[in-house]
Amino acid sequence: MSAAPTPVPSSTSRPASASAASGAMPKGKARRPRGRLGEHLLRVYTWLILLWLVAPIISMIVFSFNDTHSKQNNNWQGFTLTWWKRIGAIPDLTTALENSLTIALLSTLIATVLGTMIGMAIGKHAFRGKGAVNLLLFANIAAPEVVLGASLLSLFITLGIPRGYLTILIAHAMFNIAYVAVVVSTRLASYDLSLEEAARDLGAGPFATFRLVTLPIIFPGVMSGALLAFSLSIDEYIMTQFNAGGTLTFPLWVFGATRVGVPPQVNVMATIIFMGGVLLAVLGATIGRGRRTRRPADDTAGAPA
């Protein structure tokens, strides 16, 4: 789960909007005075925690530049760009990474669409069996992956489906759906259903209502659900191991390599994945902020329904 820090786009952009709001409202809340010592302690403490969180990541990045000649890559030998240049030098590893990336993308896509639909159903409506659906989702999240993986495997065997890329994809999409659904339904907890009625009232049909009102409002939830799904999928090991057959994914390859020594290319790839995650988070935040400040006339799609 270290690949992407599962950022929530809206939370990153919240300070901006909050300050805008406070500028508009009467000044009710004055800043509470705090002791100087307390402030220093808080600062030190905060930095320590941050350091703890990023230390493994920094080490991973640093060792992707390590000029190592042994099979083990854990003693600093000097700076080199060799591994970055020769990132594709190990064909099996490259294939494994490709598998991981495409599976992560596809399973995220599937899980985001289906999970959002489930999340909207349980977040917005009261229906018979809602409790059961909720329970099912939480069971899916809470169940040990060993159990899920093993039972899925026996199901595939029973159905006679050969293990490989497809079964990994099915497994990943399956456990990702629950995460997306829960994140989206949480986002809908404070959602006012009359917003949709207002959209209908103003001439929007059901689909336009979803596109112009519901989706933009739940979008941060959908995004964080999708990022969570992606990061869960890309480093998933246990269930993948059960259902992979002969196919290798990035985590499976790396785990297999630990016995003989992890090549620096792994660090390079992990760094790239991490950077991708950071980029996505930053992108999400800027898009979120952009929506806030864009000109009103361009805010909703102008095309007639």
Binding site: S194, A198, I217
Partner: peptide, 21 residues
């Protein structure tokens, strides 16, 4: 009021007109 939180005042007011094309 059911104002759309993701749109500004002008965007809220323009909503119906845009739907009508």
């Amino acid at each position: 009021y059911a104002l759309f939180p993701h749109l500004d005042v002008a965007g809220n007011v323009a909503f119906g007109l845009k739907r009508k094309g």
